[in-house]
């Protein structure tokens, strides 16, 4: 049988926001996290790690967006995380 609809997002806007938060927001978090790592790590090591594990992280962030109760909240969380991870880079540059 298909999944029980009781637990799924009903509002089209919420659903659309969750998909975009997971895909675009998740991508922004993943890239900014790589940049954040470059504060402690050699950039070549960031590159080698990120180009493999970055995609896995991104896919997990996409899933987490669907697990979130509110799409607004997950957008807010992802945007804050992006800003937070980008902070040392922005300050340094």
């Amino acid at each position: 049988m298909p999944a029980n609809k009781k637990y799924l997002t009903k509002s089209p806007l919420q659903r659309w926001l969750k998909i975009t938060a997971g895909f675009f927001g998740g991508y922004a978090v993943m890239i900014s996290f790589s940049v954040f790592l470059s504060v402690f790590m050699d950039r070549q090591h960031v590159l080698a790690t990120g180009m493999v594990l970055g995609y896995v992280l991104w896919a997990i962030l996409l899933l987490l967006a669907f697990l979130a109760k509110s799409a607004w909240k997950i957008w807010l969380i992802y945007l804050s995380l992006t800003a937070l991870f980008a902070l040392p880079y922005l300050v340094g540059a």
């Binding site: 890239i31 790589s34 990120g50 970055g54």
Partner: peptide, 22 residues
């Protein structure tokens, strides 16, 4: 799945990282 993404569209990762870190 993972290696396939890397081999075909790694520019998704390399482009922003190249811009930001390089």
């Amino acid at each position: 799945a993972v290696t396939g993404i890397i081999l075909i569209v790694n520019t998704v990762y390399l482009a922003p990282i190249g811009e930001l870190l390089y």
